[in-house]
């Protein structure tokens, strides 16, 4: 199965801090698909299901998050996560 790709710009004021990290990880864990993301195209992928890895991504406002998901529910997972980022995690 081909992986599903998607990207969104981190636009909330605080960037990827604890609250958004918890939100993304929780949402990602609700899907069966393998979901990973990265900021820079030259860095490795990290699991979107790990709050700890998301924190260490050090995502700043304006960074583009690239998502990749593989599995039955991958399209739904990508659209959900992209939606959360675009909605600024309900912040601001």
């Amino acid at each position: 199965m081909e992986p599903v790709l998607g990207s969104a710009t981190l636009a909330n004021q605080a960037g990827m801090h604890a609250r958004p990290a918890v939100k993304i990880a929780k949402a990602a864990k609700s899907f069966n698909a393998e979901i990973s993301l990265r900021i820079d195209e030259n860095t490795g992928w990290i699991s979107a299901k790990s709050t700890n890895s998301l924190m260490k991504l050090k995502g700043r406002t304006g960074d583009v998050l690239h998502f990749r998901a593989q599995g039955e529910d991958a399209p739904k997972a990508i659209s959900t996560l992209i939606g959360m980022v675009e909605d600024k995690f309900g912040e601001d």
């Binding site: 604890a18 918890v22 929780k26 709050t51």
Partner: peptide
């Protein structure tokens, strides 16, 4: 509570 939830998530991961 959100900070505590953050701790709960990390507890599961570690």
């Amino acid at each position: 509570a959100e900070i505590l939830e953050f701790q709960i998530e990390l507890l599961e991961e570690f």
